[in-house]
Design a binder for these strands. Structure first.
Lengths: 356, 356
DNA sequence: CTGAAAGCGCTTACAG
DNA sequence: CTGAAAGCGCTTACAG
């Protein structure tokens, strides 16, 4: 089906040179006379010659390709991440004319199998692993395979490999501090399944901040839910059904927070007035939420490019452990946070008192 | 850095066979004795042998890789598309163990250059092109290159190549019909730049429906804006500032519709009561809009897999023109559409009449 | 400065 | 049934 591309051989024949010479001319070797170098380049341009990359890579022994394994558990709302990240990775790779492969697995086992196949078959020279579990078998595998990799996020031991992460523990401390500053002391947390390291980090931040602020920790205020808007909604309903419900809820993600807002509105309450809700991610659509979502925003834009650059450096021989980058999130106040004195429980409590 | 992978040669040496024999055994050739076939397979498993794909592909002459070129002009809100599509494509390719490359270009010129490089360098055996322009140079290029491809969307002449598209002209007819059924006759349209074919299709559907419903077409009701929430907001402000503003607005996308909702709320009006707004895309996020966005939803989930299957079939020799698939969108009513009799202009007009 | 040759790791007619 | 060999299209010491 495809048109036959021009090869080094046809180019060499046309120029009455050997393929070796043509190859060296094109690759800018110093031992080729400027005259023929120019002549070769011109001819290559004219004929639209592009070196066959399979041949080239086989010959030089480097795949010039890296792979991004797409995160599982991604709600369709949160997917903007993926496209942005790919774009950034692509930019980083383009400089060196490397290719970007994507893979997607259904299960953890599948992820492992894919990685194994990909690196053993010489298809990739590096890998970016996203959203690691606390103890992620992929990392061990990559190390065994001795294949360069970077992690978007961290596992429970962040030593020994390269990673790029947002300090989400710190983010949740900031988040709780903000809410405490608004006068809240009954603060709920909606988290994600704890085998995901980021879920653990965010919970840790939450718990640390509760203690640091001298509040009493209430285990019932901590809800682990599905990492989705439905999960957030269900968890919020549980919190609101409590005898002494929290007056503020910090959520593990914007998507989960959206579910929380839905649950709150469903009861005729107003997020930001009756109950404070804080998200995490800083996704652009939060502006359009009802009401606009207050959130901890991460500097997402550069993650892809940074990860790409890091990976390339490691492939070039850098020590992975010197590429560990922790970014800070920052509060973006919109409309779902508000002072405690307006909170709904006050009405709620007074109603209950009246009826007693 | 990487561990040296086991090759056919080492495997052959260990088995005291030639590489040719081992290769044929692994590839299931009939002329290999079942006994040695078994022996070879076992050894391959044990040593974790994976054929070097660069070598294999060079040898068989097929890249076993396709490329997805990411759409430009993608607002970060609308990006969930990309991840879903990649997932679907990946599923289709996995069956045959093909790889999925992604590329992203900044400009139209860049897109062309990338495609040219990719196919001429033998890296890819097929391509999926998304969001084509009316007259998209990429399609001509692919044809000249004689490289198989499928288009996600269509150009102005949909003949001569394979594509998968939603009938967005029909969708906008449905959309307008629905709005007319609610009693509206002053209907605005917010579109995207018309060099994008889908933008033209949607405008065509809008205009056709206006005529078919016997309404008078008002050119001022047609606003072409940036393909973003900001664009939708600006366009909506223009519409609302008119002397006789529309009572309903149909938008080229959900993202644009989100901007429209913002503009409407900004004026203290209530979308779905004072003004009807209809989006297009059916993004999940619309559920969380303020209020939840009524929209024309497309059957997005399978696009990636369908495109992948189509492309593979064409690579296998199918006639591209027999792979043209048009899907229908359907209305998803949420809360931004409502009957004309409640519309804001009526108050507005009466206010003006009072003050005259 | 250029040519001749080996090698990258596969696949696949062709012998025997 | 298996071996020996050529070939895929590059790169890169090694001669001269």
């Amino acid at each position: 089906m495809s048109a036959k591309p021009v090869s080094l051989k046809t180019l060499a024949a046309k120029l009455e040179l050997t393929v070796g010479t043509v190859s060296r001319a094109l690759n800018g070797y110093a031992d080729i006379s400027p005259a023929t170098r120019e002549r070769v380049r011109r001819a290559a341009d004219e004929l639209g010659y592009r070196p066959n990359q399979n041949a080239r890579r086989l010959s030089i022994g480097v795949p010039e390709t890296i792979c991004y394994q797409m995160p599982r558990y991604a709600s369709s709302i949160a997917q903007p991440f993926v496209a942005q990240l790919l774009q950034g990775l692509g930019e980083a790779l383009r400089k060196r004319n490397w290719d970007l492969l994507v893979s997607h697995a259904e299960s953890s086992k599948d992820e492992i199998a894919q990685i194994d196949r990909l690196v053993r078959s010489g298809r990739i020279g590096g890998m970016v692993i996203s959203r690691p579990l606390k103890n992620d078998p992929r990392i061990r595998l990559m190390q065994d395979l001795k294949c360069p990799f970077v992690v978007h996020g961290r596992t429970n031991s962040s030593e020994g490999y390269a990673w790029y992460d947002i300090d989400s523990e710190d983010a949740f401390v900031q988040s709780v501090n903000h809410v405490v500053g608004l006068g809240h002391s009954a603060i709920g947390f909606i988290g994600a399944p704890l085998q995901l390291q980021f879920a653990q980090d965010r919970l840790n931040g939450f718990q640390r901040a509760i203690v640091e602020n001298g509040l009493t920790a209430n285990p019932d205020y901590i809800q682990i839910a599905d990492f989705s808007d439905e999960g957030g909604e269900a968890a919020t309903n549980i919190l609101l059904d409590m005898d002494a419900p929290p007056t503020a809820i910090v959520c593990v993600s914007d998507t989960v927070a959206l579910g929380a807002l839905a649950a709150i509105r469903e009861r005729g309450l107003v997020p930001g007035q009756d109950i404070t809700v804080i998200g995490y991610d800083g996704l652009q659509f939060g502006i359009h939420a009802n009401p606009p979502l207050t959130t901890m925003a991460q500097p997402q834009a550069h993650a892809g490019r940074r990860l790409g650059d890091m990976l390339l450096s490691i492939i070039d021989g850098d020590d992975p452990t010197q590429h560990q980058e922790l970014q800070r999130a920052h509060l973006v106040r919109r409309k779902t946070d508000g002072p405690m004195q307006n909170a709904w429980v006050r009405k709620f409590v007074s109603v209950r008192e009246d009826s007693q």
